[in-house]
């Protein structure tokens, strides 16, 4: 039986062979999808901030939610997949999200949506993982689904850009 796993804000998940990983509706968050066609294995992260180094508050005790930050979410996915004996060299990435829906949170490079996508791209580049496709930026929300059996990524938009 196929299982649908919803990857909510700040979460990440990996799976293999069958089932669907879906992000729910995202705005400025970035959804990072990794997939290895040779083993039909994949993962998805739904990150809300670029990096914990950008935080403007001090946190007692540290934050244990790696899926919350785009850079750490990429690393968390890769590490989890390597534990499943998936070679990093086989991974292909898709990025979606990073929309700038409200101007009052800034525009262009100062907007958190842009920074989320940039942080994910940077970490993927550092790890040598190619970005196969991306649908990022703009002003509309997206919903992302990964079919683990085929590697097909579907992106839903409720309104026109």
């Amino acid at each position: 039986m196929k299982r649908n796993i919803v990857v909510n804000m700040g979460e990440w998940a990996v799976g293999a062979k069958e089932g669907i990983l879906e992000s729910g509706a995202v705005g400025s968050c970035v959804v990072i999808v990794l997939y290895d066609p040779s083993s039909s294995s994949g993962g998805m992260a739904h990150a809300m901030l670029p990096s914990r180094t950008n935080l403007l508050f001090s946190k007692e005790g540290g934050i244990d939610f790696r899926g919350k930050f785009a850079d750490e979410a990429v690393s968390a996915l890769v590490q989890a997949m390597e534990k499943l004996r998936i070679k990093k060299e086989n991974l292909r990435a898709t990025l979606a999200g990073g929309a700038q829906m409200f101007a009052l949170f800034g525009r262009g490079e100062e907007h958190i949506g842009f920074q989320n996508v940039s942080a994910a791209r940077r970490r993927l580049s550092e790890l040598g993982i190619p970005i196969e496709s991306s649908d990022t930026g703009g002003h509309v929300g997206r919903g992302v689904r990964l079919d683990l059996s085929t590697g097909k990524v579907s992106i839903r938009k409720a309104v026109e850009e």
Binding site: M9, G27, C29, L49, A99, M101, F105, I112, V140, G141
Partner: peptide, 14 residues
């Protein structure tokens, strides 16, 4: 006008 989840996501993330 957009998906409610996308709207809330965009407001609370910053």
């Amino acid at each position: 006008r957009d998906m409610t989840g996308s709207i809330i996501d965009s407001i609370v993330s910053p």
